[in-house]
């Protein structure tokens, strides 16, 4: 299950790097915003679907703010600059959350009772299943949007070459915010799923997860949405297996060892496009 959350964060990251060539470090912050907003609203008595939807909306809105400061006003700047600004946004979001709600670990109330579903020996928890289905549906929708619609085509043109896209009449200033909104939505969705399933949120929850999301994205191949999903599942499995066979202490060694190995052996990731690798 954690694997599918990595996958969703990986999709958010891969969209940003695939289209804009920009590793968006504010995404772990948006993940945290999604989780924290869910918790705050539920604590104030909102029913969980409303809390989840508002969390998605807040995540998308925050991502639009990030777009202004890291992209719109910075297009002519050096390539590292958006990266720096997005890291600054991560610090900003985290510390705003600390300032408002403190840095403690907060627990989200149990919402679904004991809703486990048993098939023989297999225990499936319903919220996990619903979360998984939701995320598969959203990712499938994103994929259809990218390949079928006019906007999606424009977006893929920008991914190829943003100057050419501009010359061909693609409205770059309209589509780029859209990329941010979508990646903000996905990051917040992962946060909501995390909050509802693991019932724990805190202001720095994004960091470790964001790093695993980056690993998922790289393992699958940057810029490739389905690659990010497979990558997320691989990272999740690698974690589960190393806990099983080597103990919990070795999780980070094996996950980041896998990442380093893939970068050395096949830097474009398992499903990466060689061209993206050369131009990223």
């Amino acid at each position: 299950m954690l694997g599918s959350i990595y996958a969703i964060v990986g999709v958010a990251l891969t969209l940003s790097i695939g289209v804009l060539k920009f590793l968006n470090f504010s995404i772990p912050g948006l993940f945290m915003i999604g989780g924290m907003t869910t918790w705050v609203l539920i604590r104030h008595g909102a029913p969980w679907p409303i809390a989840a939807l508002s969390a998605l909306a807040v995540g998308a809105a925050a991502s639009l703010v990030v777009e202004r400061f890291t992209w719109r006003w910075m297009r002519t700047a050096q390539e590292f600059v958006p990266l720096v600004s997005s890291m600054a946004f991560l610090i900003l979001f985290e510390n705003l959350a600390v300032a408002f709600w403190g840095s403690e670990l907060q627990s989200v109330p149990q919402l679904f009772g004991t809703s486990d579903w048993r098939i023989a020996n297999l225990v499936i928890s319903i919220p996990q299943l619903v979360g998984l289905l939701c995320s598969v549906a959203m990712i499938w929708g994103l994929s259809a949007f990218l390949t079928r619609t006019r906007l999606g085509r424009g977006l893929r043109t920008i991914a190829e070459d943003s100057n050419t896209a501009l010359l061909l009449g693609v409205d770059v200033n309209r589509i780029v915010p859209l990329v941010f909104v979508i990646s903000g939505l996905f990051a917040a969705l992962a946060g909501v799923l995390f909050a509802l399933n693991y019932r724990q949120v805190h202001p720095f929850m994004g960091e470790a997860l964001g790093l695993k999301g980056i690993s998922a994205m790289v393992v699958g191949g940057m810029g490739n949405i389905w690659g990010a999903i497979v990558g997320g599942l691989i990272i999740g499995l690698a974690e589960a297996f190393s806990i099983r066979y080597f103990g919990a202490d070795f999780v980070d060694i094996s996950v980041y060892g896998l990442l380093l190995l893939i970068l050395i052996v096949r830097p474009t990731g398992l499903f990466g496009d060689a061209r993206t690798g050369a131009r990223a």
């Binding site: 980056i214 940057m222 990442l259 690798g277 990223a280």
Partner: peptide
């Protein structure tokens, strides 16, 4: 080229 070295160093650091 590009961001791969950054990611590899990040993986190395964490490892």
């Amino acid at each position: 080229r590009g961001i791969y070295l950054a990611l590899a160093t990040f993986a190395l650091g964490e490892m």
